[in-house]
Amino acid sequence: MKTGLILLAPLLGLLWTAPALFLSTAPAWAVNPDEMLADPLLEKRAREISKVLRCLVCQNQSIDDSDADLAKDLRIIVRQRLTAGDSDTAVIDYVVARYGDFVLLKPPFKGATLVLWLGPAVIAGLGLWAMVVFLRRHSGQGGGPGDRQGGGTQAATGARAASRPRPAPLTEDEKKRLAKLLKEDGR
C-alpha cells in the first residue's frame, strides 16, 4: 500500500504540473480569486452570465475565459450589478446597451438576424425539395419495380440506370462469340 503510494507520487506530481505546462501557451485562468463574490449563488450566476458575453478585445473568447483587461473590467461590472440586485437579464442588457448585440456570443433571434438563424434551414429545405423533384422525375421514367438495378426501392441507383439507354439484347452471333471467349478463358 505504502509502496503503491510512493510509486503514485511522481505521477500525481506530473498531473499537478501538467496544467502549468499548458498555461505557458494558453491564457491564464481568467477569473481571478480576488474577483469572486463571497456569495456562492451570486458567483455562480456571475459565471453563467460571463460565459455568454464576448470579450471584445479577443472576440472569440467569453469574458469568463479571457485574461484581457476589458474582460476583467466587465466581469467586475457583472458582479457589481448582481450584488446591487439586478436580474440576469438586466445585467446582460446593461452590457448590450453599451456594446451592442455583438457582445453576446449567441446572437439573439430577431429581425436583423433572421437570415442567420433561418438561412441554413431554408437552404436545406431547398436542397431536399430539389432532390425529391429530381428523384421523382427520374424514377417515373422507367426505374420501376422491374428495374434490374434493384427497382423502385433503390431510387437513386434506379434513376441513374434509367437515365442511360438500356443496351440491346445480344444477338445469336454475339452469344456464340461470348461462349467461345468464356471457354478460352477457362482453359
Binding site: L56, V57, D69, L70, D73, I77, R98, Y99, G100
Partner: peptide, 13 residues
Amino acid sequence: PKGRVGIDWGVYG
C-alpha cells in the same frame, strides 16, 4: 483611471 466611463461609452480598443 478605472475605465468605467469608457465602458459606458462602449470603448473596447
